[in-house]
Design a protein around this nucleic acid. Structure first.
Lengths: 210, 210
DNA sequence: CTAACGTTTGTCCAATCGGTCAAAAATTGC
DNA sequence: GCAATTTTTGACCGATTGGACAAACGTTAG
């Protein structure tokens, strides 16, 4: 009777909501919010449209739930950056974690990319609040490393942007990457090659001179 | 009588088609193909929907025209890479040109990003054909530089991907970049900072070791 | 068995979608 | 001027959209 608005109770509700979110992630990631239809999601989840709307009260509700859930795991790698460890090791494993996420959660990456491309109508407050705070905090850590002469001096914000861009590229632009590399280099070795390249690029690019 | 199918003749047709394409670029870049409506585009172009459809026979027709036009200018910077010049200079100016395009043509970048994100349904043949050929060709140039010991040995494909990703990031994820940098750093200096950072990253990252 | 509750579905709706069409209005060629 | 042509528009159409609803179905506790 509560329409599953706040807290799902029965086991069926928990399972079905999960099923719907899984299907919706697939559809939203591929077609964007407006491009996706409730019927498509219901089909992919193996249920009728009214049945789906019994578990989520609107299309927007599903999307919002997905975005919210995504953000928790999305920022985890950045949170893990620690100013106690070795700077190069810290950055290297941050890059590796981000690349692993692009490999293991490409749909989440594309969902997020779609949202940002459309002007971030649903997550702008989070970007300006939580995300900015977290980045500002890690920028201070990186600045500390630079002041200590442990990595080359550069703009920490743009360093973070570059890591985001290069790693997420393999999820968001997967089709293009595949097309350019061609069938010969289409195996899973792609990610190992990418990891090796990015590691070299950032480690050498941040090496202290002289 | 020819419905402007092949070649526009009158001056009005040329002007109005241009007006429509300009409006459509704005709308498509923001909402994607399915998210955009003919009415929105017609509104933005200051004309009625049937009038718009007098100049383009369908929504798909407009989109296809935009994509086709985009690709010509999009690949121009890559074409300009020359194996005669100094490798570092060549790569540096390629990065700068790509970054300028992200700054000056963000809508084109987002239009392209939307297309790729949705699986490149309209440009996949071009990616696998024309784009792959061009990249393959430039990869050979870069390999030559590496063999000659003029830049560090690494994967040329992923080098190109990294340049694409980092530069286009400033157009496609503009909202996020702005949000993270905050109002204090929101001026046009952003692109100068980005240019400096990327130049350092790639030049140092590709420097030949000892 | 049965009453209460949770789940599922068929049917329906108003709004919006891409696109058509015929006729009006504006422009052009002579 | 006038007729031919190009341009613009209002009205309309079938299809699809997100969502509502009540009735039917399933499940479970007593």
């Amino acid at each position: 009777m509560d329409q599953a608005a706040r807290k799902p109770r029965t086991r069926i509700q928990i399972e079905k909501r999960e099923l719907i979110l899984e299907a919706a992630l697939e559809i939203f990631a591929q077609h964007g919010f407006r491009g996706a239809t409730i019927d498509q999601i219901a089909d992919a989840a193996g249920m009728s449209k009214p049945n789906l709307l019994y578990y989520f009260k609107s299309k927007d509700d599903i999307h919002r739930t997905l975005i919210q859930r995504l953000l928790d795991t999305w920022l985890a790698p950045l949170r893990e950056i620690d100013d106690i460890g070795d700077p190069v090791t810290e950055l290297r494993s941050y890059i590796r974690r981000k690349l692993e996420m692009a490999r293991d959660y490409p749909r989440e990456s594309r969902l997020f990319a779609n949202e940002i491309l459309q002007g971030a109508p649903r997550v702008l407050p989070m970007l300006e609040g939580e995300l900015k705070s977290l980045v500002d905090e890690k920028v201070q850590v990186i600045r500390g490393w630079m002041r200590a002469g442990r990595i080359a001096r550069t703009d920490p914000y743009h360093l973070i942007f570059a890591i985001w861009a290069t790693t997420q590229h393999y999820a968001d632009f997967d089709v293009q990457v595949r097309a350019v590399l061609g069938p010969a280099r289409d195996g899973e070795g792609r990610f190992e090659d990418a990891a090796r390249f990015l590691e070299q690029l950032f480690v050498e690019g941040l090496r202290v001179k002289g």
